[in-house]
Amino acid sequence: MLAEAKGSRSLVVDGITHRYPGGAIAVENINLDVKGGEIIALLGPSGCGKTTLLRIVAGFIAQTQGRIIIGDDIVDRLPPNRRAVGIVFQNYALFPHFTIAENVAYGLAARGVDKATQKREARRLLELVQLSAMGERLPRQLSGGQQQRVALARALAIKPSILLLDEPFAALDKNLRLDMQIEVKRLQRVSGITTLIVTHDQEEALSMADRVAVLSQGHLEQFGSPSDVYDRPRTLFVNTFVGSTNRMAGTLLAADATGAKVRLDAGADIVTRSPAQPVAEGGRVTVCIRPEHLQFVSDDSGFAGVVGMALPLGATVVHEVMMGDGSAVKVSQARFGETRLLENGVAVRVAPLAPTLANVFSASI
């Protein structure tokens, strides 16, 4: 866990619920305890409530229940301009007729800061985001990545306690998106500011955040480190939404604290991790295991199948294997030089690299 940065402020989302007029629930009983200096990603599909939660923290939406606490202060009654939060929107929202320096200084000007301080802070922040030579340009004269850095500098200018990023990389192409993710994380580490980022991009959340809050249909499914969310998902939704996974139907034969045994519909028994939530023996379950956690074996372990297709994907190769019950699993392997692709129709046996890599969930969920 990241140590709390000196001078940074914590954020507590305490039992936040928001209902729309008519009773529809946007978010329900969300609890997050964010340390000062952390980057937290709110991850989930469209409509899961992550942007609503971000706007509640910012003060743009008044929640139905719960509290927002920044540092030691309950800020629910404060308007957005008194919450000391900086926000970067998906479309950057730069003023088109202001120069870049004027855009960066806007928040300071709105707070009555003298012009000399405005100019000094604008110069300092433009240097921080590596745009010191572009202060007199207009937004339309900058690339998308440069405009994003201007929006970030503007948000930092008011010295916010919390930085909020709403899908900040969605408008960028893939290569530029990666560069900007690195740049934003570098700036966040330099400033030490507590940051909340909304995203539907799993790789973005896992690579940038210290912890990830996974939301689905307004509920918090899991809040933990990227490795916990990816390797030890608490729910079937988290396991299937974050990363790629194979789902295999079966029946739970036995389970204890050390592991579980499942009889797959495909016609084999496998040993897995214990269920994240209790499942009765004899109950129907779904076994989830990621393609990179499966391997081809030469003994009688695992389950039998037939290669249906081979897909070389640069550094990896993915084989689709058809199982006895008609379902399919994907097996992903690193490519080393001239890695041989298995031909369609070849009989194989597939097993987990380790029992602790397979997760089990009740099929009724």
Rank of each mutant, 00 (worst) to 15 (best):
P160L: 04
V287W: 03
I158H: 06
A170P: 00
I39T: 03
V88C: 02
R124L: 05
L220N: 05
G49C: 14
P96R: 12
A62F: 09
A268M: 01
Q181G: 09
E102L: 02
V214H: 13
T286D: 15
R211Y: 14
A257F: 01
M322V: 08
G145Q: 02
L108N: 05
L164W: 03
T199F: 04
V12M: 14
R67S: 15
E292A: 13
D265N: 15
T17V: 05
R273K: 11
I193K: 00
T272W: 07
I74W: 09
A101S: 12
S301P: 04
S225K: 12
R82G: 01
G259R: 03
A62L: 06
L131E: 00
V75P: 00
P168N: 04
R67A: 13
V75I: 12
T235K: 08
L357P: 00
L253D: 04
L163R: 01
A41Q: 07
M1P: 10
A209M: 07
T51G: 07
V85K: 01
I193N: 03
A109G: 06
G15V: 00
R9W: 10
S191F: 15
G283T: 14
L142D: 05
V88F: 12
Q222S: 13
P21N: 02
R211Q: 08
T240W: 11
T258K: 14
E204F: 07
Q130D: 05
A276F: 08
N31D: 06
A155G: 13
V88H: 12
A334H: 11
V307R: 05
N239E: 14
A354T: 10
M1C: 03
H219W: 04
Q188N: 08
Q65I: 02
R140Q: 06
E221P: 00
V348Q: 09
S364M: 10
I68R: 08
Q222E: 14
L164D: 02
V317F: 06
R19K: 14
V297S: 02
Q295M: 12
I70Q: 10
S364R: 15
L311Q: 15
